[in-house]
Every structure is written in C-alpha cells, then in structure tokens.
C-alpha cells in the first residue's frame, strides 16, 4: 500500500506531497498523520503541496479535515507552496479553506509554525510555569 511519507522535524511534522493525491492516498494520509501527531506529541504540521498539480473538491476537503483534526490534537497546520492553478481551482470550487494557514515556501511555513509554538509556550508560561518548563525541554 502506498504511503505519503511523514517526516519528523523536532516538534513538527513535515509532509511533502510528491505524487498525485488520489482519494485513498488522502484517507491513508489522514490516518497516518493523526497517529504520528499523537505518537510524537507534535505541535505543528507542515504540508508542502508544491508538486500537486491537480485537485478536486475531495482533496480540498481532505486538506481542511486534516487541519481540523490536527487542531483537535493541538497541532497547527500550515499548507505551503500551493500552485496558482490549484488555488484558482479551489476558489472556483468555493473552497477557501478558512481554518488553514498558508505560506509561500517551506521556509516561511516553518517560521510561522515556530512563531505559533513560541507564542503558545509564552501563554503557557504565563499561566502555569511548571508545565511550560516541561514543554520547552521537549522542544
């Protein structure tokens, strides 16, 4: 069975979609990703779709779902490198993916994730000093 590789980078997970996403692959990714987030306790997910040339409404919805699921598991999702044609298609399909953060490049996406995690750490620090200490040792 085909899998889309999920790479772990510190407290983030990096997914690069390099093949055409078909429906079963997307569902498999959803399974794998939620599993890995729980397994590693990740705080951020970065999905690079710069190689994705074709999308349909199903894949669009999957992206939205993945983001929502990650959020439930306390991980931020950033989608990076969406191609113009893909963006236009999604907009024409009426899917603006409201909950998803986006960035132009992987680098910028990582910056966003780091910024987010730092912010949430600071909030935690302000609220509960001991738990924040645990969190920072994890990173």
């Amino acid at each position: 069975m085909e899998h889309i590789p999920i790479l772990r980078m510190g407290s983030f997970l990096l997914i690069t979609v390099q093949v055409d996403m078909h429906d079963r692959l997307a569902l498999q990714l959803q399974d794998d990703l939620t599993e890995r987030i729980v397994q590693h306790g990740s705080h951020g997910v970065l999905i690079d779709i710069s190689a994705l040339e074709v999308v349909d409404s199903f894949i669009g919805r999957m992206l939205g779902n993945i983001a929502s699921m990650s959020r439930v598991l306390d991980a931020q999702t950033v989608v990076v490198g969406m191609r113009p044609a893909v963006a236009i298609t999604l907009v024409e399909l009426g899917m603006s993916l409201p909950g998803i953060r986006t960035a132009l490049t992987v680098e910028r996406g990582m910056e966003i994730l780091r910024g987010d995690v730092e912010n949430s750490m600071q909030e935690l620090e302000a609220e509960e000093p001991e738990r924040a200490a645990d969190g920072s040792s994890e990173v």
């Binding site: 999604l90 907009v91 603006s96 986006t102």
Partner: peptide
Amino acid sequence: LKTVTAARLMGA
C-alpha cells in the same frame, strides 16, 4: 474576492 482568496490560499 476570488483573487484575494486564491492569493491567501497560496500564502500571500
């Protein structure tokens, strides 16, 4: 609006 949304999807 469509143009703005599409740009936002790409991260701009």
